[in-house]
């Protein structure tokens, strides 16, 4: 589905400041992130100050202010995963992709993130890739995972 224009998202909700979070959720869902222009448009549409929109958007983890890669690789760094070497996974991903947590690679394929417990501690260290969980990860398996994703992307590109 192509992203709806901000105008369409705001439709029927103009001048209703209480709708702020819902509107931001829709922007996030359609665009994958919330840009400054989007926030300004939302502020104007709902009749709240830009600062207010920025505060809300920056507060919740569900909103991302930076573009997200096609594959979001999330490392669990909660206690259980931490003691089983989540740090090594984070280092591996950072080294392999050359970006910091929260940032996107230049080709727009990957974003690294970390969370504080996915609720599957017995399976740790846990890594999720766009919501699909991978359990008992180690740096080697993570490297393969990223390599495979890359390969798939290359294959897709050469197909079209």
């Amino acid at each position: 589905m192509p992203p709806r224009a901000i105008k369409a998202i705001l439709e029927g909700r103009r001048s209703q400041p209480q709708q702020l979070i819902e509107v931001l959720q829709d922007v996030q869902a359609d665009y994958g992130y919330i840009s400054e222009e989007a926030m300004r448009a939302v502020a104007e549409g709902l009749g709240v100050q830009p600062l207010e929109v920025y505060r809300v958007a920056s507060f919740y983890k569900a909103f991302s202010l930076k573009p997200q890669g096609k594959h979001v690789i999330t490392m669990c760094t909660g206690t259980a995963c931490h003691v089983r070497g989540a740090k090594l996974l984070l280092d591996q991903a950072q080294g392999q992709l050359g970006v910091k947590p929260g940032d996107m690679t230049d080709d727009g394929l990957f974003t690294i993130a970390h969370v504080n417990c996915l609720g599957a501690c017995a399976l740790g260290p846990v890594v999720t890739e766009n919501g699909a969980s991978h359990h008992h990860m180690n740096p080697g398996r993570l490297r393969k995972l990223i390599d495979n994703l890359r390969k798939e992307e290359k294959a897709e590109v050469s197909h079209d």
């Binding site: 400054e36 926030m39 830009p50 600062l51 207010e52 929109v53 505060r55 920056s58 507060f59 919740y60």
Partner: peptide, 16 residues
């Protein structure tokens, strides 16, 4: 200006 971010990232900032 207002408080932006949460937890360790909380800071005073102007919009964007």
């Amino acid at each position: 200006i207002g408080f932006v971010g949460r937890g360790k990232e909380r800071r005073v900032a102007s919009p964007f």
